[in-house]
Structures are given as C-alpha cells and as structure tokens.
C-alpha cells in the first residue's frame, strides 16, 4: 500500500515536472538549431571538459548542446523524476547503476574516464603535509567529501584500503566545496580529485597519494531512453568516447578508462 502510494506520488510529480519543463523549453529549442538540440546531464567534475567538448560538438554537428552540471546523485534523481535529458554522465558507477536499473538508460553505460583522489593543500603547504598518512595527524585540519557523495565514497574506500583514518574537520557536500576550503585557507588539506587540483590552476598544490588508483572513480556515460533525439544522443556519447574526447579528458587530469 505504501509502495502504491509512493509510485502514484512519483508519477504525479514527474508528470507535473515534465509538463512544466516542456512548457518552458519548447520555444527556444526548436528554431535556430539545424541539427537538433541535446541536453546532457553531467557530474559537476566534468564542467570544464564537457563545456569545451560541447562547443566542438556544436561546430561539428550544427546542433545545440545544453548542460546541466550537478552532483551525480542529484542528477540521477532528476532523471528518475522525469527530467527531459538525452545523456547522463555520472561520476561513479553506483549512481549510474541506479539509473540503468530504473530502466532510464538506452543501452549499456560505458566507462569513458577515471578520476583519482589527490591531496590539495594551500600554496606553500603551511602544515607540511607530505603523504596521505600525514592527514591523520593531530595538528592538520582536513576537509573531505561527505560519504553520501561519490568523492566521499572514494575517500572512505581509500581510507579502508590504506588503513589511514582521517579525522576530518568537515564533510563537504561536494568536491568543489572541499576545494574551496583549501582555497580560502580554512583547512590545511582536502581530499579532492586530480581534475580539481588541475582546474584550480595554481591556487592549490596537489600531492599524489600512493594507492589512490585502487579507489579511483569510474565515469560511465549512457544515452537516456527518454531522449527526443536518440541519434544525436548516441553521437554525443561516441564523441566523448572518441580519441578527441579522450584527449580533452586527459588534458583535464582524468585517467583513460582502459588503464587498470
């Protein structure tokens, strides 16, 4: 009984959301775009790379690409609630599995990149952090991601794999928030992705973690069943998986998917 009510509630909410979104999205999407339009839901850590790739894709196909960047689990929930997206790129496999198991994926998700954790410290490294074990020290203030979000899950996994327990001062709601703590000098170190250190562009220093590959996040991508233009959605996925896509991802600090 609870289930039935729950489903009815979800259906009603989805219908409302769809109606609202269809109502506002209809007009501008239709005209001007010769090659159709595409809405890509992608993990926040993909913001820089996908924005760059999107511009190239638009030039090549004459289509319009719009992005919604947010935490993977937020996006997965929006997809489950009927948000009109064509492609979903997640920052971890479990979130993608939820979407696939819910029947929202069109085909099997493919891993297109991996991201490993790094230690980010303020310029000059005031606390003298040298390796992962130093983060467990008393005098070091550390920010990590909350275990509910992918980068926090990866941090948990890494702590288990290495046996180092970090006494974090704060569990941030996403990886960018953890990075901001370092940028503002509120913490001595934060556990973030390699790509975040790269995108901070000198505002923070990165320190590699031995064994971080063990806890690397896979980034899967898949066209969505609800897509209004499945052909174009497939084209975008292939473009991300292409050599051109892989090159841009590597430049941003991602590891290739094939690397063990």
């Amino acid at each position: 009984m609870t289930d039935g009510r729950l489903r009815a509630g979800t259906a009603a909410a989805s219908a409302l959301l769809l109606a609202a979104l269809a109502g506002c999205g209809g007009a501008p999407g239709g005209d001007g775009a010769r090659g159709g339009s595409l809405t890509v839901f992608a993990a926040a850590s993909l913001t820089e790379v996908f924005t760059g790739l999107g511009e190239r894709f638009e030039e090549e196909t004459g289509s319009t690409v719009e992005f919604s960047f947010a935490g993977s689990s937020d996006l997965a929930r929006q997809i489950a609630d009927g948000a009109p997206a064509d492609v979903f790129a997640s920052a971890d496999a479990p979130t993608m599995d939820e979407v696939a198991e819910g029947g929202f994926a069109d085909g099997d998700p493919e891993v297109f990149a991996r991201n490993v954790l790094r230690i980010a410290v303020p310029p000059g490294n005031p606390a003298g952090v040298e390796d992962f074990a130093d983060l467990a020290g008393d005098g070091v203030t550390v920010a990590v991601c909350a275990p509910e979000v992918p980068c926090g899950a990866a941090a948990e996994e890494l702590m288990e794999a290495t046996g180092v327990r970090i006494g974090a001062a704060s569990q941030e709601e996403d990886v960018k928030a953890a990075l901001t703590r370092v940028r503002l000098g509120e913490v001595d170190a934060a556990l973030v992705y390699e790509t975040d250190v790269r995108s901070a562009d000198g505002d923070v220093e990165g320190i590699g973690i031995e064994g971080a590959e063990e806890a690397a996040n896979d980034y899967p991508i898949v066209p969505l069943a609800s897509s209004g233009d499945p052909g174009l959605a497939r084209e975008w996925v292939d473009f991300v998986l292409s050599e051109e896509g892989a090159g841009a991802l590597t430049d941003a600090g991602f590891r290739p998917a094939s690397e063990p």
Binding site: G71, R77, S170, Q171, E172, E173
Partner: peptide, 26 residues
C-alpha cells in the same frame, strides 16, 4: 554549511542532515 562546515555530531544540524541524506537515500 558555508561557515561551520558539516560534520556529524559537531556541526551537522538537521537541515544539513536532510540535504546530505537526499544525495543517498531520499
């Protein structure tokens, strides 16, 4: 969440717990 951060038992108040729970189990 901006000023005090988020840590269970120290700074994680109910609204923060709601927000983070939403990420994993609605």
């Amino acid at each position: 969440i901006t000023f005090a951060g988020n840590f269970p038992g120290t700074t994680q108040t109910m609204p923060l717990a709601v927000y983070l729970a939403m990420q994993e189990s609605p």
